[in-house]
Design a protein around this nucleic acid. Structure first.
Lengths: 135, 135
DNA sequence: CATTTGCACTTGCAATATGCAAGTAAAATT
DNA sequence: AATTTTACTTGCATATTGCAAGTGCAAATG
């Protein structure tokens, strides 16, 4: 997405200015499920993001402090990406999207299983998952 | 946005295929706050959507059953748009985006006031607001 | 230690989407 | 009857996306 041109003072609009495109939330999703991803990991996702788009989204998400780069422990050729706290804090948004989607589309079984846990104790689920990602 | 080309079976991706652009959620936002809007009402929003983009988004949201058209009670020249149940059900998503934004940006006072209510009783807030929109 | 492979990007270009300004047609107002 | 309002549509310039191929460095292989 684009740099810091805010279209208004609305929080929805401001948020969309950062991650309101067809790809950013999928990158964030991948990091929520995997905790750490390499460039190649993102490219493996079902949706088949183009390499140039991936590079531009990673840069923009990093500029907006949603994700950060880490050195890969066993190779200088690899880069690890992970969510910052600001990124992890998007988890409730991702969860509500899941819950909405579950009401209106068929969704994969593993996601259904996850949502079963979510519904049992949403706050608890988020707390545990956040700990997992930030620890 | 585009027609029904699903990029994957992921619920996040499926959702973004419908409203994952810079404008759709703003239209939905306007309808959450106003319940019913005319074409001209949408054009008045701070973000200044272009008329052609507005028309294309309204059409796509209608095709996806997020919004519906209604006859305006006192004029055939006017059209009213409102959220369907499927659209109203996006409220938790919009609320979580607000809560996230509040943590990381300055947000307007009226939204802050709203979030204060939300935080007091999220389920109650959603129930009441949904009733308001669907009644 | 030379060569190949893997990884994270860049680059070039075509296709698509966005944004702006102006236009249109029907309905309402004057 | 003429003007204005309303909901769009159209044309065109600009920006973004998507695809395919390429680049450069690091690591593995022979």
């Amino acid at each position: 997405m684009n740099k810091t041109k805010k279209r208004s003072d609305c929080p929805i609009s401001n948020s969309l200015d950062i991650w309101g495109d067809k790809w950013s939330l999928l990158i964030i999703r991948d990091l929520m499920f995997a905790k750490e991803c390499t460039y190649g990991d993102f490219l493996k996702a079902q949706e088949r993001i183009a390499t140039n788009i991936l590079a531009s989204r990673l840069q923009s998400l990093e500029e907006n402090k949603i994700i950060e780069k880490l050195d890969h422990p066993d190779s200088k050729a690899k880069v690890l990406y992970r969510l910052t706290k600001k990124g992890v804090d998007l988890m409730p948004v991702l969860i509500e999207i899941h819950l909405w989607a579950e009401k209106y589309f068929p969704i994969p079984d593993d996601r259904k299983a996850m949502l079963k846990d979510v519904k049992k104790d949403k706050a608890g689920f988020i707390k545990a998952a956040t700990k997992e990602l930030m620890g």
